[in-house]
Design a protein around this nucleic acid. Structure first.
Ligand SMILES: [Zn+2]
Ligand SMILES: [Zn+2]
Ligand SMILES: [Zn+2]
Ligand SMILES: [Zn+2]
Lengths: 172, 172
DNA sequence: GCGCTGATTGATACAATATATCATTTCGCG
DNA sequence: CGCGAAATGATATATTGTATCAATCAGCGC
């Protein structure tokens, strides 16, 4: 059954390599700005990378404590804040969790598509959505600097698997 | 209990009348579904209406307690959940607060524009944004049923007031 | 009106999420 | 090394949201 839509399933994290290269780049940028990439911060990034998806701050904390029993909520939130400022981590407002950015090369107005069945999160940089949002802001006289778009539903593979569920859903 | 005179606070804003008419309609709809519009639920709606903007659950609680000292967090959240299910209230994820829906006539994928200076929130039903989001979902094989768009920035009147700020901003 | 039934509330406790503070340690650098 | 900025550790606390269950209320058939 792998013939249908294995597009995102993909192999065991092919992005991992790229993510690690990205980490090095981030590190360089941070140092240039007088900020440091420390053990704790690296640990947070590694945990998110290993998870391959979103984690809440306290789930992250549990994982960090396996390696370092002294980890605290404050530490986790500090590291998360650091990476969010660097553009390497996003916060999913609708699930109060955190996830690695899939395009950390540059700041970007991204969109997050969330599957409520399997928890998968896909990050996009869709020009259409971004442009429409920007246009809307202009129409209303706003100068926007934060762009939060989280779209929740059911992904293709979950729909393929769960034919037992009701076919008729009403978008709300 | 004291006589529950339904003296709705004199209308301070123009939409208030329409909102109150909408309340009656909601009430009818709710009854038709075996749900009740009670004193406590009405109080939550009135408080949001009087505020004219977003309130956190606990800010709401403070206000309710002025009139009824027995109000509790659970009660506030229950009422909010009730109205959100009815489509009369939205939760602003980015500020963890709640606001009246400006178009409660029907379910809708809306967008919220938030001014970080004055806290103003404008709700829109922009076809362009909604269509772009829907298209994006289709491209990625998602069937979406929740549409969260919160755009934050500075509104026109705040910009007019605060000319001291820097003119060149980069949307992120 | 009377009692039945399910919806709603009251009261309390608790869970989950996030931040404040300050003494101490580490890092980068001259 | 020794300085100052950055980061952490430790602790406490603030904020936001739920669970539980007995008591009460509203609608309904009688
Ligand atoms: Zn990103
Ligand atoms: Zn899925
Ligand atoms: Zn609305
Ligand atoms: Zn404003």
């Amino acid at each position: 059954m792998n013939g249908t839509a294995p597009m995102y399933k993909a192999t065991q994290r092919p992005e991992a390599e790229a993510q690690l290269r990205t980490l090095e780049r981030l590190e360089t940028v941070c140092r240039a700005r007088g900020r440091r990439v420390t053990r704790q911060r690296r640990a947070v990034l590694r945990a998110l990378l290993a998870e391959g998806g979103a984690l809440t701050a306290y789930e992250l904390l549990e994982r960090l404590r396996v390696e370092d029993g002294r980890s605290t909520p404050a530490g986790v939130y500090r590291a998360l804040e650091f990476w969010m400022a660097a553009g390497a981590v996003h916060r999913l407002e609708s699930t109060r969790s955190f996830i690695l950015c899939e395009h950390p090369e540059a700041p970007h107005p991204g969109q997050l598509l969330i599957c409520r069945e399997c928890g998968q999160v896909v990050e996009t940089e869709d020009k259409g959505v971004a442009a429409a949002a920007h246009r809307l802001g202009e129409q209303l006289g706003f100068v926007l600097d934060r762009h939060l778009v989280e779209l929740t539903g059911v992904c293709g593979s979950c729909r393929a698997r769960g034919r037992a569920a009701e076919p008729g859903r009403r978008p709300a």
